[in-house]
Design a protein around this nucleic acid. Structure first.
Lengths: 335, 335
DNA sequence: ATGAAAGCGCTAACAG
DNA sequence: CTGTTAGCGCTTTCAT
């Protein structure tokens, strides 16, 4: 590997050509003779020449960079999504710039602006739990800027979206629990700004109905801090006690592990013999105690699909007419 | 938020100034009168002007971008490191470009080259398990290019490094187990290309010695695939059976969870009452079954420290004279 | 204190 | 088929 950086000019000088000829030869232009192309290519190879992407970006007005906003990188689910994004981007020669909103609406807005000004060619984002004010995103979409939402998506306006079938997740969770003999099913959910939690609650209701169970408000506990707040979760667990449930469906990754942590801390694991079904993308849910049935989102695939959809937009000659929503199936797994 | 992009020229035209004056005013140059500065600044604010980072990069020959290479983004530990890196970089106005080596030496080399050519200002990397050939990295370091290794670092040459106190982790693991009454302590380790695994094994040996126990080769099982290969781990567990251990120390994140998975699969959790101490950065190790004592690396801090060290190098007027190795303490935690 | 002009490395319109 | 030239948006030297 050589660390010397060469320019077109260097090659031009060495071969007694003009920079434009070199440029064209390297881009395999039809205007250049085979002979010259060969000469240029082989010399370029020899010195391990690489075009300066910054100069090219300035000229072409595109950076080959896509921005990503997630709430937290070190979250099972999001890190897997990022893994998917990165792999597609790498193959298509895009750089990926990752940022974190920390569930904060203000910061999210700053990030969008920051990334936008940083000349990203497109943006991949999931909404923060606090995102109530999303007008600026609607404007951004309407302006034609390539943007794909994944997982937590806006519902007040049209846009490209990649999501999991959250509602079905709720339905299947209930069905599974009923099949296993549960008769009183509780639900723990997170912040209802998020499309995901609302959809999963919908699924929960639908599942109950389909199985002839009434929906009872006392069966549901809300943890707006999404499991990050231990006290909140412990309270939820204790409040739910009186409901006497024999099965529970939990709406999110941190909520699920938070619930298990709370059970462990409150320390009556033996008495609790209820079944637990929860959304989680943990790769090691089989070693959790108490055991759970996991609902997984195809995170890597979601990242891949979102990245592909975004790159398609970026590289489209004309803005894409129709907004597309890709819905991915969820997957249930028991130990 | 406005999506219109303005240039210096736009401002210059609007205010009847030259672009150079505007440029200087925006950078608060002493040559510009307060009055003009005010005029320019307020107008810039009004139209929400942002310099074009690409043009600036071309001119200044720096991209304000740092590259990161990890083996896998969706790994507890690495995603936490990235979280730390991102936060520091964001504050100091650097972009972070993340890539994954997938433990593959060839790909790692390609990435280094790729990032380098992409005009990153500096590189943060952890070695892949396959990294045996690291000469090119030595050359890169010697060339003066800003580069900081973290976690898995090269040992055949000097460089800036940020690591955890792995050896101490091994020592403390043994000490903990002995204190809890263990008399026969086993060890599972990963690929010995990696500094981390070698150091932890060293610590293991040292800990045994300090407590008057002999080191026995049969006590150690090697899992070069680092827990990613389930069969490998199951074999290790079964082979270890005959050693009759009452305590075990496990050398890595995936190895630790892999060990627990293997125990669960092999299914005699009740008979196994040995104590387990393992490196893991899982945020939810308290809900693991069987219970373990976790050795955590300060991952976020490691990312922060590495990023700061890197940025210091990038922004240093003269190349830093001395290579610095920052060693961070590990932390033990039980349920 | 301000402006004109050059140049970072590249691409492409235009000319030949 | 190849070269000349202009220009992407910015910073900075040199002139005034």
């Amino acid at each position: 590997m050589s660390f010397q950086k060469y320019t077109l000019k260097d090659i031009a000088k060495a071969l007694n050509l003009s920079t434009s000829t070199v440029s064209r030869a390297l881009r395999d232009s039809y205007e250049i003779s085979e002979e010259t192309k060969k000469k240029v290519l082989s010399y370029a190879q020899k010195i391990n020449f690489q075009v300066n992407p910054i100069a090219r970006s300035l000229k072409e007005r595109r950076s080959n960079t896509i921005g990503v906003i997630v709430s937290e990188i070190s979250n099972n689910f999001f890190s897997q999504v990022i893994e998917g994004i990165e792999s597609v981007a790498y193959d298509r020669n895009y750089q990926v710039v990752i940022t974190q909103s920390h569930e904060n609406n203000k910061r999210e807005k700053l990030l969008v602006e920051h990334l936008f000004k940083r000349s990203i060619d497109g943006l991949l984002m999931t909404l923060s739990a606090e995102s109530n004010e999303t007008e600026y995103l609607e404007d951004l979409v309407k302006s034609g800027f390539p943007l794909v939402f994944f997982d937590r998506v806006p519902e007040t306006f049209d846009a490209h979206k990649v999501i999991a079938d959250n509602k079905k997740g709720g339905v299947e969770a209930v069905e599974y629990l009923v099949r296993k003999g549960c008769r009183r099913i509780a639900h723990i959910t997170g912040n209802h700004n998020l499309s995901t939690n609302r959809e999963r609650l919908d699924g929960f209701k639908k599942g109950l109905k389909a199985n002839g169970f009434p929906f009872e408000e006392e069966a549901v506990r809300y943890c707006p801090h999404g499991g990050a707040d231990a006290g909140e979760m412990e309270r939820a667990v204790q409040e739910l006690e009186s409901y006497g449930y024999d099965g529970i469906f939990i709406s999110g990754d941190r909520l699920t592990t938070g619930y298990l942590q709370a059970l462990n801390r409150l320390g009556d694991l033996e008495n609790k013999t209820h079944r637990i079904v929860g959304f989680t993308n943990s790769k090691v849910f089989e070693i959790f105690n108490p055991p759970i049935t996991a609902i997984k989102q195809p995170a890597i695939e979601m990242g891949e699909k979102a990245a592909k959809l975004l790159i398609a937009q970026i590289e489209a000659k004309y803005p894409m007419e129709e907004y597309e929503t890709i819905m991915l199936p969820i997957e249930m797994a028991s130990k």
